[in-house]
Design a protein around this nucleic acid. Structure first.
Length: 274
DNA sequence: TTCCAGGTGCATA
DNA sequence: TATGCACATGGA
């Protein structure tokens, strides 16, 4: 998987790793294309990634951070083999065979997915980029995502101006609520308890909480149910409009592989079936 | 014009 | 506990 690691560069084989699939499967909003490369940002880290015929060259001053971020030490062939035993997963796994679940910064993930609720990806990205530019430290030609402390002064009016709509109030509130949250300590909580704690935050409901758990806390025993998963469930399982019921049934079915299954299905359904 | 986007919060029964 | 509706915004 990791072919070589140097101080400013990481070379990664393409086996079980497709950068476009990983970035565009809906788990992350902090990347963009620059010339022929992808620029990937997470918290205050940046990677500029070149695609070669048989590998990716990840240019970054933080190679270890991106080894963890792209989950490069996990063997996805085992996960895909296990999940392929479920008939419903066969095509989605083939379609998104290079997806990896990112390990993102928790604060950034909380803010990103509050913005994402009932919103479209284009506007979500626009809003998050503005937050970076307005409150983040400058790193070279790019901007870091602000820390809680750096973003603390942002008001409802500010977020509304960015186009956050009715989520502006949630964002202002959550910044205050997070001051007593203690993200570091929360990492040790069991999934269900942590889920309830996240849901108590402003703008965080069951779906956003599950996304934060999966993409920020790397909890694989959650299955975020959004409009696309609901469509998929109604197509492949049974008619059901209660998202909580859908979530419970899918977690029961996929257990500790739920998070992986969700991403393969989401990507397949959203980009292929519509 | 209406519908929809990786839903949440709140009132009501 | 469960259901229904309002909530900003802009593209299709």
């Amino acid at each position: 998987m990791i072919k070589s690691k140097e101080e400013n560069r990481l070379i990664v084989e393409k086996e079980d790793f497709n950068l476009v699939q990983t970035l565009e499967c809906g788990q992350v909003f902090s990347y963009f294309k620059e010339n022929d490369n992808f620029v990937v940002q997470s918290a205050d880290k940046v990677a500029i990634i070149e695609e070669k015929e048989d590998c990716y060259i990840i240019n970054t001053s933080s190679p270890n951070y991106f080894i963890n971020y792209f989950d490069l030490t996990t063997d996805y062939s085992i996960i895909k083999r296990e999940l392929s035993k479920f008939p419903v997963m066969k095509e989605p796994i083939k379609f998104g065979s290079g997806i990896r679940i990112l390990k993102q910064d928790i604060f950034e993930t909380i803010i990103s997915f509050i913005v994402s609720a009932n919103n479209n990806i284009k506007r979500i990205t626009k809003i998050l980029n503005k937050i970076r530019e307005n409150f983040g430290k400058k790193i070279g030609n790019y901007y870091a995502f602000p820390t809680l402390n750096e973003l603390k002064g942002a008001t409802e009016e500010y977020f509304a101006k960015l186009g956050a709509g009715y989520r502006a109030k949630y964002l202002e509130n959550v910044l205050k609520e997070l001051e007593d949250f203690n993200i570091e300590e929360s990492k040790n909580l069991p999934t269900e308890e942590l889920r309830n704690k996240l849901i108590s935050l402003s703008g965080v409901g069951p779906k956003v909480a599950d996304c934060i758990l999966l993409f920020g806390y790397s909890r694989l025993d959650v299955f975020p149910v959004d409009t696309w998963i609901e469509k998929m469930y109604n197509q492949f399982y049974e008619n059901c409009s209660n998202r909580n019921v859908i979530r419970q049934k899918l977690v029961e079915e996929f257990g500790n592989l739920s998070g992986y299954a969700q991403q393969y299905l989401f990507y397949y359904k959203r980009s292929y079936l519509k």
